[in-house]
Amino acid sequence: MKTSSTKILIIEDEMIIGANISLQLTKLGYEVIGIIPRGEEALLFVRENKPDVILMDIRLKGKLDGIETAQRIQQEYNTPIIYITANADEAHFNRAKSTRPHAFISKPFKKLDLQRAIELTLSRIAEGDDTKSSAKNIASSPYKLSDAIFVRHHEKMVKIIISNIHYVEAERNYCRIYSKDKNYLLVLTLKDLDEKLPKKHFIRIHRSFIVNVSQIDEVGNTHVIVAKKTIPISKTYKEELLKRLHTI
């Protein structure tokens, strides 16, 4: 995917931070079309310049914070928004979640965090542009074989042997598959992935976790252990899990 034609707007009231983000994006090959410190100014800028992606600081000085600015922008445009925040508390997250952002990046962040968030966003945009293509729709979701699934990873379809998958963890609007040798970040919610994975092998045990039943080593009162990882289990899912394990 070419990045040079991707126009990114930074809305950040700390200009040193904004300049640093701009430098990193430029090195990655993106076109930064502006660094705007106030929400009110950003609204006008978006109307005139129509960015492809917006990096939005949640806490902006002025009349509008980042979330309110995002809401105003979304009233007119469907521009993907990636939030940047030093305050990821539950209240701010729930407010921000209502604007359906494509990603969150917590300050301080690494260059790789920024790169991955934008790549995932662009990947989702590309998939949205081709929703009428059945081949594209298949490629964006896990494709099942009897002993493996294919998932989209870095613009390729990668085969993962089911017996090698340990568990899946939700990461807000994405989810990550942890397997024996590697992990894979998918542009898919945990709920959507749960509907696509073969029920014979997988079970959801928590709002944030799906596990491979064959990989469970231990079941406690409030957790299971999979590949030395302690994973919480919700009461609502525990009964179904115990049925699947044929406990005696």
Rank of each mutant, 00 (worst) to 15 (best):
K180G: 00
I233H: 04
V224N: 06
R38K: 07
Y174A: 01
D89S: 08
E119W: 12
A139M: 13
Y143I: 09
R47G: 00
I225F: 08
M157R: 14
T121E: 02
K27L: 15
A86S: 15
I33P: 08
M1S: 04
Q74T: 00
D113N: 09
K156T: 02
K2N: 07
S163M: 04
I160G: 02
E239R: 10
V46A: 05
Q71H: 09
A135Y: 09
A227F: 02
G66D: 13
L145C: 03
V226A: 05
H206R: 12
T121R: 04
Y167G: 00
R59A: 11
A170G: 11
K107S: 09
R207L: 02
I21W: 08
S146E: 07
A139V: 04
H246N: 14
L64N: 11
N49K: 15
E239K: 15
C175K: 08
A96H: 08
I81K: 11
G66W: 14
D89Q: 06
L44G: 05
I210S: 03
Y178S: 00
K235E: 13
H166S: 01
Q215C: 14
Y30R: 10
K7L: 04
Y83D: 07
Q24H: 08
M15L: 15
G18T: 05
M1L: 07
E76T: 01
R100L: 13
R124G: 00
L44D: 11
D129C: 01
E76V: 02
Y184W: 11
R176M: 05
I36S: 06
M56T: 06
K50R: 15
P142Y: 05
Y83A: 01
F104R: 07
V32Q: 13
N183H: 13
K180N: 08
A19C: 02
E171T: 02
Q24P: 07
F45I: 01
P232K: 05
V168T: 05
D113L: 12
I162Y: 03
S106N: 14
A148D: 06
M1F: 10
I210V: 07
H246K: 10
H153P: 02
S146M: 10
I81A: 11
I58W: 15
E48A: 04
I225R: 14
N137G: 00
Q74K: 12
R100G: 00
